[in-house]
């Protein structure tokens, strides 16, 4: 398996609080990797390290995250182009109060490199990728707010996919959705990994087992165990992992 991202000795502090402790791991290209762990273990914060969203919250970070041979925390990194390469979908669907088309085209438009017709093609492709095209093709000009929660979340995925990222980060993307929409997103993840690497944070252990190839178990800011999902869920190496996935705490 080809490594897409290497995390090296990553530490993160919010003021005095030591949130992430010396994490080392590799994320493999075109796979689904899930990060699980009890609430407050730092998994969302960890996810946000990959597109430097923690910069918005004045986090102090040391260590390296290497993507395409480059440390994204080096001084030379342009954060905005990094974020074009690393898409993100949030816990609560958060489309902009704009039309469905404008939402999907947002990333492309701020890049300012493409012509109108190219953008249209890309928007269609992204919406097809998330199985939304047939549902919205006749009403691209309608407000994104008129969509259902599940559709909104898929629109947010399309929005993240439109700039052709190498990896997308999903931060508990189904926790605000009903079971049917959740199913759809899960199926989508499995389908999408042909094109793009997926890193998903979830509090739903069964979900991690269903869709991911690799699983990382995070506890109190430490990476307790990381490996192939199948192995981890059948023969966990660590006692804590076993307790967590068998539902003894969480």
């Amino acid at each position: 398996m080809k490594e897409l991202i290497k995390v090296r000795d990553l530490n993160l502090h919010f003021k005095e609080l030591h949130v992430l402790k010396s994490i080392n791991m590799e994320i493999y290209d075109k796979t689904v990797t899930s990060v699980i762990g009890p609430s407050g273990c730092g998994k969302s914060t960890y996810l946000r390290c990959f597109n430097r969203m923690n910069d918005l919250k004045d986090a102090a970070i040391d260590g390296e995250i290497i993507l395409d041979e480059e440390n994204i925390y080096s001084r030379a990194t342009d954060v905005t182009s990094l974020r074009m390469k690393v898409g993100m979908v949030f816990q609560k669907p958060n489309p902009f109060p704009k039309s469905i088309f404008e939402n999907t085209a947002f990333g492309l438009k701020i890049q300012g490199k493409m012509k109108g017709s190219e953008i249209e093609g890309r928007v269609e492709q992204s919406l097809r990728d998330v199985w939304l095209w047939d549902e919205v093709k006749d009403r691209l000009k309608d407000s994104a707010m008129s969509l259902s929660g599940g559709q909104q979340q898929r629109l947010c995925m399309a929005r993240a996919l439109a700039t052709n990222p190498e990896i997308i980060l999903l931060d508990e993307p189904t926790s605000a959705l009903d079971p049917r929409s959740t199913n759809k997103i899960e199926e989508l993840c499995v389908e999408l990994k042909k094109e793009v690497t997926i890193l998903i944070v979830t509090h739903n252990i069964a979900q991690a087992a269903r869709i991911s190839d690799y699983t990382a178990f995070l506890y109190l800011g430490e990476l307790v165990e990381y490996g192939e999902t199948k192995l981890m869920f059948t023969v966990p190496k660590d006692k804590k992992t076993e307790e967590y996935i068998s539902g003894k705490f969480g």
Binding site: T80, R83, M84, M88, N94, F106, G107, I110, R159, A160
Partner: peptide
């Protein structure tokens, strides 16, 4: 809502773009 800012930043928008476009 802060969500909008976060979404725009995550798509690679600069601060100015977040302000003027979202």
């Amino acid at each position: 809502p802060f969500d909008f800012r976060e979404a725009a930043f995550s798509l690679g928008a600069t601060k100015r773009q977040v302000i003027t476009r979202v």
